[in-house]
Amino acid sequence: MMLYIKNMVCSRCKMVVKDELIKFGLHPKNIELGEVEVEEDLNDENKNQLNIILQSFGFELIDDKKSRLIEKVKNSIVDLVHYSEEQINTTFSEYISRKLHHDYNYLSNLFSEVEGTTIEKYFIAQKIEKVKELLKYDELSLSEIADRLGYSSVAYLSNQFKKQTGLTPSFYKSLKQIKRRGLEDL
């Protein structure tokens, strides 16, 4: 049985979900961002009990098709920005459309309707969080960060960073206490 889980956006999330499923007496076969396949079938009562447990960790079971699709969009973006070394050789809209096997306009309209923001703004927010992370680690130059995240130039990255945070990347890097948001809060 496939379970679709909201806010499952990182490898630690996968570990927590797996642990909780096992404690609940389930046997996970495959765990991906936002999706878990378990050997057992669950009735509505078991789903509700599991959902209560998952909610205590900030997760939530999702049943409706539209919510699952939105979660797949989010997880695809998180995966692309934070965990993949892949450089997309096409437009972002074509990449998402191909990855999720849906027309981009449909995905975009659905996402905006439910989330109250656009897919592009969500993508930019994820990229800015990754920039913050890379600035904090201080291992890459701004030029290397721009290249890694697919920005056409350092100026474009800096401009987008300032629009999102109100700070320049260099000023942000100089701050003593760098505050980042959790991926699930974007």
Rank of each mutant, 00 (worst) to 15 (best):
Q126I: 12
V131C: 04
G150F: 06
Y156C: 03
G150E: 15
G58A: 06
N159R: 15
L3D: 11
R98Q: 15
E129V: 08
E45L: 15
L140P: 00
V81W: 04
L69F: 02
L142T: 03
L21W: 07
E39N: 04
I77F: 04
E139D: 12
E32Y: 06
F92H: 06
D138V: 01
L142K: 12
K14Q: 14
S93H: 08
L61W: 01
K121I: 07
E120M: 09
L134I: 02
P28Q: 09
S56V: 02
K176T: 10
N75G: 09
I119D: 00
E37N: 12
I5D: 11
M15E: 15
M8E: 01
E113N: 10
K130E: 11
E94Q: 07
I119V: 05
M2C: 08
S158K: 08
K29I: 11
L80C: 04
I22G: 07
V131W: 10
K130M: 11
I77K: 02
S170G: 06
K65S: 03
L21P: 12
K136A: 15
Y106L: 10
D79M: 06
M2P: 08
K121L: 12
I53D: 04
N105P: 09
A155W: 08
K173S: 07
F111H: 09
L3G: 13
T90R: 02
G116T: 00
H82K: 08
L186T: 07
N48A: 14
K163I: 13
E115Q: 01
S112P: 00
S143Y: 10
Q49K: 14
S152D: 00
L26S: 03
F24Q: 03
D138G: 06
V114D: 09
K132M: 14
Y83V: 14
